[in-house]
Design a protein around this nucleic acid. Structure first.
Lengths: 191, 191
DNA sequence: TTCGTTCTTGACTGTTCGTTCCAGAAAGGG
DNA sequence: CCCTTTCTGGAACGAACAGTCAAGAACGAA
């Protein structure tokens, strides 16, 4: 009943995510969003609510996409150390080729301190990452690869924090050696 | 020669720094700044230039104040480990009582990716912190406290990145245990 | 076909933005 | 004293902002 949408909802949301990811919340105007999403202003409001609601939906989409990547990488069978090393190396390459950083990290920095909805989402995403690291570390212990680790929960928390620090560092400098040094020392705690 | 300023330049700049630190660049309006700095709109423009120039000067002031704190703490005689532990513990307490985070970290996240001036300042500040950590680590090695450290440069870079990750984590969660876990594991690399 | 619903479109709302202009008040140098 | 310089305060600028409105086009159901 009624006319059908001419645009794909998920596609438009994905574009919105890229705009917010690139410019942040405050620096993204509705005009920017309308143009990049290739939909009409009114369709944006009808479909996603206001700017803030759209931002939260974009955050959710990012979690679904990027969060899943971490979980999948951590669940890959074989060496846990190798999986972790690969995650950090991929992160370095991304930081060097793309200065947007991590959308979740950006959201933490820009809004989590004064927006409850954003804080809840970034915190939830962080918790999921902790869980993925934690499970991987437990498996590493079980399989005898990570005998030296005592408090796997603490190490999991450390790893995510370190990952965010690495990404942030990549925004200030493009020096590969600096990023590589950070990863080398970070991974030394699971050696 | 002419009338004197009715406000103190440094005091006004300090207030501006607090506004930018709290709200970020984009979310701080000239009106906010005028009100918190307790100076006239025109005086702001005459004294500091435009909004962007004021922001850079606020960043410089932050570096002078907070950067010096790190340097001084790292130069304190006695145990290097103790000094580092104290730095990280202070950072936890600040994160729990004040959600503004680190102005430099905020600047990296919000602007360093697309503003050359900001990138230069955050990068310079990071370099200074690296240097302070590096010198402290060297002293620790020299004095026999940190025998296990091989690449002090890499560890210095790691420490600053970890510090930023910790602060960012504090924006998403106020859970003390989470932050404490991160610090415990971070400091385990210099144990 | 007709009706009801939904989507699209572009103009439009009032507000706030960063910035500038201007007139006048205040102060030091001659 | 006057002159020059500087600071102050408020009004004003055009542009951009988030969000809304009304009219019409497109479709499904009856």
């Amino acid at each position: 009943m009624g006319r059908q949408k001419e645009f794909d909802r998920e596609e438009a949301l994905h574009k919105a995510m890229e705009v917010f990811w690139t410019r942040g919340y405050g620096a993204s105007s509705i005009q920017d969003l309308v143009e990049h999403m290739s939909i009409n202003r009114q369709s944006l409001y009808d479909t996603f609510g206001d700017k803030h609601a759209l931002y939260l939906q974009a955050l959710d989409r990012y979690r679904d996409i990027e969060g899943r990547k971490i979980v999948e990488l951590m669940e890959r069978p074989g060496s846990v150390k190798r999986n972790l090393r690969q995650l950090f190396e991929i992160t370095i390459e991304k930081a060097l080729s793309d200065r947007r950083g991590c959308f979740m990290g950006n959201a933490m920095s820009e809004l989590a301190g004064r927006c409850q909805d954003t804080a809840a989402r970034t915190c939830g995403n962080m918790g999921a990452a902790h869980e993925a690291f934690y499970r991987a570390l437990l498996r590493g212990k079980r399989e005898g690869e990570l005998k030296r680790i005592r408090d796997a929960r603490a190490v999991a928390r450390f790893l995510y924090s370190s990952l965010q620090g690495l990404v942030l560092t990549g925004k200030a400098t493009q020096d590969r050696k600096t990023l590589k040094d950070i990863v080398t020392v970070t991974l030394s705690v699971i050696d």
